[in-house]
């Protein structure tokens, strides 16, 4: 499905990013696995991809730093010769009630989750414009649509990503670069494992499909948005949330 395509997935050492990297590799894409801290985990993802018979490299970069992002993109293009798919997945949380949230907590989350998407998108645009095609897929969050107490910084960043997706889609449509977002709901990851049983059952009541999503549920939608099957879709945000927000 994605034979010969080159994909860069940010924050791909674990969770949803890891599932996306593996899914794209299964479809034949060469994958650059970006990580900021967990080099061992990124290396393991690279090895898993190689076992699937596809090519992969790991690339260290803090997506909130322009120099890191530029170096990362250069490295990917040098290694694989092109860049067809960017998945902006890297994200952090620093949850706190608004009243208690420190300025640094707000800034850190905006820097990585919103500015990081801007920098990576800007960074790949040149290459994609030259190729006259490209796919940019931003992993937002359902809370960016609905809001969520305790996550003012995260929600602001994710809502920002949805707006950025629409603007980028409009700016680049004439160059055949399609830009979409995915808004996952509650997905089983390290982040949701930390929740108590009470919190988990409270969450279930909000989800019509009455179960948590899996990282693979998100990865398969990324596969769709990266493929020829979604040729007429741009600027959209697809909810992958078990029907939580309609």
């Amino acid at each position: 499905m994605l034979q010969g395509k080159v994909a860069l997935v940010t924050g791909a050492s674990r969770g949803i990013g890891r599932a996306i990297a593996l899914e794209l590799a299964k479809q034949g894409a060469k994958v650059a696995v970006n990580f900021a801290g967990s080099e061992d985990k990124a290396q393991r993802v690279v090895e898993e991809i190689q076992q699937l018979g596809s090519e992969a490299i790991k690339v260290k970069a803090n997506v909130s730093l322009e120099t890191d992002v530029k170096d990362m993109i250069k490295q990917v293009v040098n290694e694989f010769g092109s860049l067809d798919i960017l998945v902006n997945n890297a994200g952090i949380t620093r949850d706190n009630l608004l009243m208690r949230m420190k300025e640094e907590e707000f800034d850190e989350v905006i820097q990585t989750n919103l500015k990081g998407v801007f920098l990576c998108t800007k960074g790949v645009t040149r290459q994609m414009m030259k190729q006259k095609s490209g796919r940019i897929i931003n992993i937002a969050s359902i809370v960016g649509v609905s809001g969520n107490p305790g996550q003012a910084n995260y929600v602001a960043a994710k809502a920002g990503v949805i707006g950025l997706t629409k603007t980028t889609a409009k700016e680049l449509a004439s160059r055949n670069i399609l830009v979409n977002a995915i808004a996952p709901g509650f997905i089983e990851t390290d982040m949701t494992d930390k929740l108590s049983e009470d919190q988990q059952s409270g969450i279930m009541d909000m989800i019509p499909l009455a179960k948590l999503g899996k990282a693979e549920d998100v990865a398969r939608v990324v596969r769709f948005l990266a493929s020829e099957d979604s040729n007429y879709i741009t600027g959209q945000t697809i909810h992958v949330d078990g029907g939580m927000v309609m």
Partner: peptide
């Protein structure tokens, strides 16, 4: 404006 950006590239 995009044409100009491409031209510069």
């Amino acid at each position: 404006s995009l044409d100009v950006v491409e031209l510069v590239m």
